[in-house]
Design a binder for these strands. Structure first.
Lengths: 144, 144
DNA sequence: TATAATTCCTGTAGTCACTAGAGCTTCAAG
DNA sequence: CTTGAAGCTCTAGTGACTACAGGAATTATA
């Protein structure tokens, strides 16, 4: 006899939300569960497993689309692992880039804050710093 | 005599996009520019400055709402700097948390990939890892 | 067992910060 | 003067949810 969950219990057990679960069902990530006599969803352990898989992958920053690919892959257990590997590798690359970028931001915010003389807005280095381009290469020189 | 830009030139000079500029105008972050006889937007250096301010702040991860607050602040130059300071400080805190979180993800993805035996999907550690909760505290124990 | 409180249902709309497209007008180069 | 690029407005789409309205079903309490 399997455990059977209401959507609320499944949300609580998995650490997600009722609305999110219904959303994952609507976009086809979670299979449609059985319904009881009163039309309420009744989930099994299989649903729990699938949901935890999705939540982990989301936590790791994978897009819904990447997760869909992984789920498709796992329904072909004879295929080589290469594609799943590739998805994880791309994600790792992405995460590393995000870290590098955020560290630059951290440094710039630290500088911005340490420069601030705590006077009035007119002298505020926070605003001033944002208004200028120090080492930034995004724009051309101001066109004066 | 001031430089005057078309929206396309402003986009190119600032490193943003035409649509983004119109969007910032629509939500009230950029003041409405003058129009020429043919109803086309004509921007001045003031607009360029404001746009660069916004783009920098967005690059630093500030929300549109935080930027709006900073702009409001800067129109009251006599107020103390404290509020602007606080916005930057909160943002720094946020960036640091994001870095910490991403580093955990990086480690988990590295582990996932190094475990992968490159066999078939059935043995794929990438998928397996996502399906389990190793050290994760998000959910309760599986309810079997 | 009756009622009250909670949970669940569907469907729609809202969020954020843009981005893309349709269908038209205006501008600039040759 | 023609032609093609750039501009205009307005609407809808994106991703990944989140929130609400207005009911129906279930569960807890008296």
């Amino acid at each position: 006899m399997e455990h059977v969950f209401s959507i609320g219990k499944l949300a609580a057990a998995s650490g997600s939300k009722v609305e999110t679960i219904r959303y994952y069902e609507a976009i086809g990530l979670l299979p449609e569960p059985e319904r009881n006599a009163g039309n309420q969803r009744r989930y099994s352990a299989r649903h729990y497993d699938r949901l935890v898989f999705i939540l982990h992958a989301r936590d790791l920053g994978l897009s819904i689309d990447a997760i869909r690919q992984l789920i498709d892959l796992s329904s072909h257990p004879d295929m080589p692992c290469h594609d799943a590997d590739e998805i994880a590798r791309r994600q790792l690359e992405d995460v590393r880039q995000r870290i590098a970028r955020l560290k630059l931001l951290e440094a710039e915010l630290e500088r911005t804050l340490s420069d601030c003389s705590h006077g009035t807005i007119a002298e505020c280095k926070v605003i001033e710093t944002l208004a200028q381009c120090g080492a930034c290469e995004r724009h051309q020189r101001p066109p004066r």
